[in-house]
Amino acid sequence: MQTIDLQDTGLRSLNQMLHDQAETTNQTVWEIDNPKGAHAIACGLDAPIEVVVKGSTGYYCAGMNKEATVRIKGSAGPGVAENMMSGSVIIDGDASQYAGATGHGGLLVIKGNASSRCGISMKGIDIVVHGNIGHMSAFMAQSGNLVVCGDAGEALGDSLYEARLFVRGSVKSLGADCVEKEMRPEHLEILRDLLERGECNAKAEEFRRYGSARKLYNFNIDNAY
């Protein structure tokens, strides 16, 4: 295992070392000590390595991640795993705004709560939140799955496209064009898999599914506000 003290090494050197890892690297496990809320830690990774961040992170930790597994042993600042392509990011604590924003793939697990705009404009990423999520989450979400084991804030799924939203607790309000949908067997199957991969013990049958009413898909003046 490679152990890097971020305060000694500096962000640029750390990220360059991680970027330099090839597909076949044998340096597959990295531990980053003393993150102290620094921004852009382990962003742009592109190799099947595991990075453990021992503490809380600032903005955009694991941004645009590909293939790597990033574990944050603390809480994450805004935009964690933004635009993730593949791999996984697991946060032991809470996540600030825009967690998983525009993510194209991979799995984001937040074991605490997520703030507002979780999964905004998501494009294929799977997000599992053990706690609650804030307002305007999954705004303009295009595809992928958002699983919320707690409650959802206001305007969930506003202007939603094809993403699937699963919420176990209450939903303060649904956004424009977001509706509750029937939970069919294929959805339960997807949800069970996500809960298992998301290290969550909740039962799929306890969730409700939300999706797009598809009334905003083509411009209609009667839908304007």
């Binding site: 921004h39 903005y59 955009y60």
Partner: peptide, 27 residues
Amino acid sequence: DQRSACRHPDWTGPDDLEIKILELREI
């Protein structure tokens, strides 16, 4: 119809923008 949002999804002001630029430079 494919809508393009009027503002960025993961930053909201000049202070955030500075950090966003840092991320893009790091990547």
